[in-house]
């Protein structure tokens, strides 16, 4: 079992979460080339070490949050709500940062 510390709910079994993916910076649509868009969509750094990634607490608070996780040991050194900046990076709609609910969230 892998424990993930949700910034709202505290430590929970990772089966309660959906892995969203590595945090990546969204390119500027005005200047990005096709190659830059391809990298944004498909290229991940996938390190054997520390990575910053987003998770969705499906079976809990139904919020997105950001975790710094070591991909070898699964140790977590930081867990926080997405910064306001997240709205322009991996989460263009700002779903993770504000009061909106994510695509997996049902009404109850």
């Amino acid at each position: 079992m892998m424990l993930l510390p949700c910034p709202h709910c505290g430590p929970r079994n990772s089966s309660e979460f959906r892995y969203v993916g590595e945090g990546t910076a969204r390119p500027d649509p005005g200047t990005a080339t096709i190659g830059v868009w391809r990298d944004y969509l498909y290229t991940r750094s996938n390190p054997a070490g520390w990575t910053t990634e987003n998770w969705f607490h499906r079976a809990g608070c139904r919020r997105y949050f950001t975790v710094e996780r070591h991909t070898v040991s699964n140790a977590v050194r930081a867990s926080h709500r997405p910064a306001a900046q997240a709205r322009t990076t991996s989460d263009p709609e700002g779903l993770s940062a504000g009061t909106e609910r994510g695509p997996d969230a049902g009404p109850g």
Binding site: C9, R12, N13, G60
Partner: peptide, 8 residues
């Protein structure tokens, strides 16, 4: 008593 949470 009075704790509330959502979980599996």
């Amino acid at each position: 008593d009075g704790a509330a949470f959502r979980s599996s």
